[in-house]
Design a protein around this nucleic acid. Structure first.
Lengths: 119, 119
DNA sequence: GAAACCTTGACACATCCGTGGTAAGGTTGG
DNA sequence: CCAACCTTACCACGGATGTGTCAAGGTTTC
């Protein structure tokens, strides 16, 4: 598996080199480096960059939104505080019926367990 | 349970009236209105505003971050896409070990079921 | 009916996000 | 050793966030 330098990676992912550096700075896709400090994008990073671009295009989501989601995934305290705040609502906003939210947890839980079992 | 008008609510929550309108605009705390259109903050909204302020102060989180979390909670498609993107990682970033992420799901699920049972 | 509220809308400003450029300097390959 | 890459560090700039203030006008209360 050979790695691409930043300009090559830019060419195949649709991001600009400038943006690849910015994306790295947000903590979302961080390639490893050559001994001299050159960024080296492997297949995994390239795929991640392409799907990230797709994610941003498909929904109206910003890089900082995804970065925040990543932070949520990694910081239990933060995650639980936010979730506690959100669930202390469960009333008026009719687009969030608690049943659906619950159903979400169940499904994702099952999906992740299945994935873990398959691995 | 009597309701407070915006200036009274501002006084007891520490938000400015201007910010209360802004927070409403983000969709995070929306009071109902009097027949003439005056905002009426009930006990639930006041509590929500106070804990929101606490949440923002405790962690380094913006209103739009919390708004995005709320959007995640209500939009299954978005949620699953983001989560799929995040879990397609599970490697280098040592602050996100997949087990912890899994444990999160389990715990929250249980917590919510308990809350539902208690209600 | 006047004082003291409330409403929306706008102007203003600092700060960040997303994005491009450009400059000064190190690395690599023929 | 030179061309073509790479690096970091800046300047710039439009749009979004967060926050204050002010104006023009409706509502409530005495």
């Amino acid at each position: 598996m050979q790695s691409l330098t930043i300009n090559e990676a830019a060419a195949t992912t649709g991001w600009s080199p400038r943006m690849l550096r910015y994306v790295e700075q947000t903590g979302l896709v961080a390639p490893n480096r050559s001994p001299a400090g050159y960024r080296l994008y492997g297949a995994a990073e390239l795929q991640r960059l392409r799907t990230l671009k797709e994610l941003l295009g498909q929904f109206d989501v910003s890089l900082s939104d995804v970065a925040f989601a990543q932070r949520l995934a990694g910081d239990r305290d933060l995650r639980e505080s936010v979730q506690a705040w959100l669930s202390a609502q469960a009333r008026r906003p009719e687009n969030v019926h608690s049943e659906e939210w619950l159903r979400f947890e169940q499904e994702k839980h099952e999906r992740l367990l299945a994935a873990a079992a398959a691995a």
